[in-house]
Design a binder for these strands. Structure first.
Lengths: 167, 167
DNA sequence: TATTGTTATACTCTATAACTATA
DNA sequence: TATAGTTATAGAGTATAACAATA
């Protein structure tokens, strides 16, 4: 056990011998690091179209449910109504989505993609497939299925308990 | 693809029939929701001591490596040096950690837990065990091991590529 | 009264640039 | 010249409270 480390060689910064203790075994810690890594890959992939994960999620929900209200997106995605406003604003200003006055209820808007937004979606979906493929290349298709299954258990379980939205 | 959705019953707000389309199959989306759920459980559990996940991580690294420098924590946890400053400030103001002037290098500080900080740690670790147990209760011990394995693959793979820290 | 969208506000996390004092 | 810590600043994301219009 003769160990070579008298009083710091003074040549190199020695910078990397830090113990993380129990952190690598904590689900929250590892999940946060992994989630940041995935989002960073997403953002690199979507940089050319300047679309962030939250924006893409909102666009998908509008695409899937034309005419729905902001409060429905809010509930579906777990985004507070108040925080959704500037998000929709940005999509509208970029000409990707529109607020149309709702027929029956004059308090709410019916959200739709514009034709520009609709045609952008196929490009976004292609970027998304490439992004997913990069992640899958590390864990395999079976790994993805298992990961989604476990994450779903965590999410459904831990999150449930009350209204996600608003206050 | 026969789907049951004639023309909306019109009686109830219909509030919950929103399709998420491909989102539940996207790793980033599901991972973000799961990660938020886990952190919310963590924060509920740690509310009585007013410790956030990032603070707990920093305390652990100091506990495991007494005397280390801020830049080492920065590299180890992927937190920018600049963002670590107010974090350490808060721990110091609360009397949980201290900056001691380093022996050899007068630019840096040697970080240590105070006795108050050290004794708090055992309480924090107990809260953490309870938190982990709540998550494990949903996925099982085997599920946790598998989840950590897959997340580790994602993290190590996608994150690698350059310096985490600074700019 | 309750709901929908909105505004205002605040706190955390993340990111960059630039400064200082040391090395 | 490079490193350690700091400051200032900016942008997302998330959170609450309160308001106007409408139901």
């Amino acid at each position: 056990m003769a160990d070579k480390r008298p009083e710091q060689p003074a040549g190199e910064p020695s910078g990397h011998q830090v113990s993380l203790g129990p952190l690598p075994g904590l689900i929250g810690y590892v999940m946060r690091r992994a989630q940041l890594a995935v989002f960073q890959d997403f953002m690199r992939g979507f940089a050319s179209v300047d679309i962030r994960p939250a924006q893409y999620a909102v666009l998908i929900v509008i695409e899937q449910n034309p005419g729905l209200k902001q409060s429905q997106i809010s509930t579906a995605l777990g985004i507070k109504r108040a925080n959704l406003v500037p998000l929709i604003d940005a999509l509208e200003e970029r000409g990707l989505a529109t607020r149309k006055s709702s027929a029956g209820d004059r308090r709410s808007y019916a959200l739709h993609l514009t034709s520009k937004g609709a045609s952008l979606m196929s490009h976004l979906h292609a970027l998304r497939d490439a992004h997913e493929a990069r992640v899958i290349s590390r864990i395999g298709p079976g790994g993805k299925a298992e990961l989604l299954r476990l994450l779903g258990l965590v999410f459904d379980a831990t999150a449930t308990g009350g209204g996600e939205d608003d206050g």
